[in-house]
Computed example of a mutant assay.
Amino acid sequence: MTKVVKIGNVLVGGGNPVAVQSMTNTDTKNVTATVEQIKNLESAGCKIARISVYDEACVESLKAIKSLVKIPIVADVHFDYKIAIGSILAGVDKVRINPGNIGAKWKVEEVARVAKDHGVPIRVGANAGSIDESYIKKFDNPVDALVQSAIDEVNTLESVGFGDIVVAVKSSDPIETIVANEKLSKMTSHPLHIGVTEAGIYEDAIVKSAFALGHLLYEGIGDTIRVSIAGNPVEEIGIAYSILQSVNAFDGPEIIACPTCARTEINVEELAREVKKSLADVRGKIKVAVMGCVVNGLGEAKGADVAVFGTKNGGVIYMDGKMVSTVSREEILPALKNLVLEYLKGEKKFENDKARN
């Protein structure tokens, strides 16, 4: 099990829930736009937000941004160690530095000393595209070069007594990402942040991230995650939670839906999206099926905890494979949510009764 690192009010590592992260794509100097995007990310379920800090003016903006948002803020710093130190002094909750470009060893050590004095964790974020040339020449395998560059940076931080470290090794190649993190997990006990960097546009990013991150999480590797999508970062959050849910690492409703056919009597996609949104604030392990007709609906109702299948006039709702009610289209969402909440309360009561026995 990895160590625990405290990032603002979020604990990562040590068996804590996997924290979903994202990164703003607004100009950090535009405080209003950046704060708005961070709040949108938080509303979507983001637990930690990273922002680019590329010059002194960005450092000044950090103070205002920090005062206006609730979730932890990570300063993403490249090239200039003074910017990293300035970000720490401005009150960020974590600093991300890249071992491929932050500079000489003494600069990293200086950042570590200031971070230690202010209780700010550091994420060592090594990317395949920015490894120092010396590692490329030393290793034939790019994965080994990537991992060793991260480990050497960790060793530098630890050499000055700094231990609040999160490590990330990312590649745009999902297989390299998997192998690199598997190797890294055997070489350090620090929490790991996992993700596929430069994963591409929406559908490509989803496929690459689901493959790599799902694989790693299934192996028990990964304490925080980010799905990198070229576009609106808010879209990353829902995908990240879907990946977590696919490996039973998220305690929320699982929504399944039929692929539809000519027998479908309702708009399944529309209803499934409405159901997912309606249950977004619900916590607990439960499978909810949204089906388009009775052909698969009855069968799925038996496999799901709660199910609805559409009819011309509305829907039929099942719980534990038994029909509960017939409702109109307008009544489906409130009826389904009430049933889900009842089910989870009953499950909790059952667990408590079991515990007493």
Rank of each mutant, 00 (worst) to 15 (best):
R329K: 15
M323I: 13
S134N: 07
V340I: 09
P174W: 03
V294N: 06
K170Q: 10
Y343P: 04
L68G: 00
K183F: 06
V294D: 00
N141D: 15
I51H: 05
K208Y: 06
L157N: 12
K276L: 05
F79D: 10
V77R: 01
V308S: 09
V324K: 15
I7W: 05
G15W: 01
L217Y: 12
T326Q: 14
A128V: 10
G119F: 06
L146N: 06
N25W: 07
I83P: 01
K138T: 12
H118A: 09
I51Y: 02
F162S: 03
Y135R: 06
F350C: 01
I256Y: 02
S246W: 14
G86P: 02
G238V: 11
V31S: 05
R263V: 06
G15I: 09
A145T: 08
I83N: 03
G163N: 15
L41R: 04
N141E: 12
S61R: 03
A19M: 11
D93G: 04
K277Y: 05
T260I: 12
I221C: 03
K105F: 00
S130R: 02
E236P: 03
E274C: 01
K137P: 00
V160D: 11
N232E: 15
S171M: 08
P121H: 08
F350N: 13
G103Q: 10
S22T: 15
E133Q: 13
T32P: 00
C261S: 10
